[in-house]
């Protein structure tokens, strides 16, 4: 029974892959082998959908990469400072970081949109900037990295200090290499989270050529007249899911441990 339920988890996605190789009339039939087998839906998704799923893929990849890098750089520097450096107001500032977890994104929608709109970030390539800025650093990234830095023995950095290394050298040469597992977890969770993100992209990515896969997919159905053109829609679903699936297969441990440890993503 357990095996049955486990297999059931894969049925919808398998069905999606099968459907993407079918013709539209065949897509509504309960047949496992597409007949005829066709690449037409994939050609349609790549060549005829407006914008092409290749463009959407590029946007998704660009935004997810920049947001992940930004979280890694800002998160590891701040995480290190909060874990190791002594400076007045440290505890108060860290409380502010944690307090941001209490403010739902939705409450920020109107003020952030109006602020960015005033800065010209709701038109043209500014739309990318808006999405990236609003996701550039998350309290979760800082928190996860700080907790990891706290577990690294102090002796290691003190040895480096005695050798005359400054704070930055100590961070770069000693602490960062030791924090590789935490950096990997943040990279994977952040990339997945940004790749899949819906709320801020749907708010800011108004122009179709600037949209990411989730947003493009949504508007193909809602306004693009592709409402029941299932095979190309399912091809797009497959393209939107494959990169995350690959990450999941290779780094399953990080997904499972990261989610359980942070518990922030609902």
């Amino acid at each position: 029974m357990m095996i049955g339920y486990a297999l059931l988890m894969f049925v919808p996605f398998t069905w999606t892959v099968i459907t993407s190789f079918k013709t539209l009339p065949d897509a509504t039939r309960l047949t496992v082998i597409p007949s005829p087998f066709t690449l037409a839906a994939w050609e349609y998704a790549i060549g005829r959908l407006e914008p092409s799923v290749v463009v959407l893929f590029g946007n998704s990849f660009f935004i997810a990469t920049v947001v992940t890098l930004s979280n890694l750089v800002l998160g590891s520097l701040a995480g290190y400072a909060f874990a190791r450096l002594r400076f007045p107001g440290r505890e108060a500032l860290f409380l502010i970081v944690l307090a941001t977890l209490m403010i739902p994104d939705q409450l920020r929608l109107v003020p952030v949109y109006i602020l960015f709109s005033g800065l010209g970030l709701t038109i043209g390539t500014g739309q990318y900037v808006a999405v990236i800025l609003v996701m550039a650093i998350s309290a979760t990234s800082i928190f996860l990295l700080r907790q990891y830095f706290l577990t690294i023995p102090r002796e290691l950095e003190e040895a480096a200090r005695i050798d005359g290394a400054g704070f930055f050298t100590t961070f770069w040469r000693v602490m960062l290499p030791l924090a590789t597992p935490a950096l990997a977890a943040v990279t994977i969770l952040q990339f997945q989270g940004t790749w899949n993100s819906f709320f801020w992209p749907v708010v800011f990515l108004i122009d179709p050529p600037h949209q990411t896969l989730p947003i493009g997919l949504t508007f193909f159905r809602l306004t693009g007249g592709q409402g029941t053109n299932w095979p190309p829609l399912m091809a797009t679903v497959v393209i939107a899911t494959i990169p995350i699936l690959v990450l999941y297969i290779f780094f399953q441990r990080y997904f499972v441990e990261g989610i359980a440890a942070s518990g922030v993503k609902g």
Binding site: L85, I96, V97, P111, G166
Partner: peptide, 30 residues
Amino acid sequence: ARQETLAGYALVAVPMLFFLVLNIGTFFYA
């Protein structure tokens, strides 16, 4: 110790700016 303080502020400055403007600040702006 003085260097440590400066380093601490420098490292948290950018994230704190983001949080103060785009989180805490927007709360009041809303």
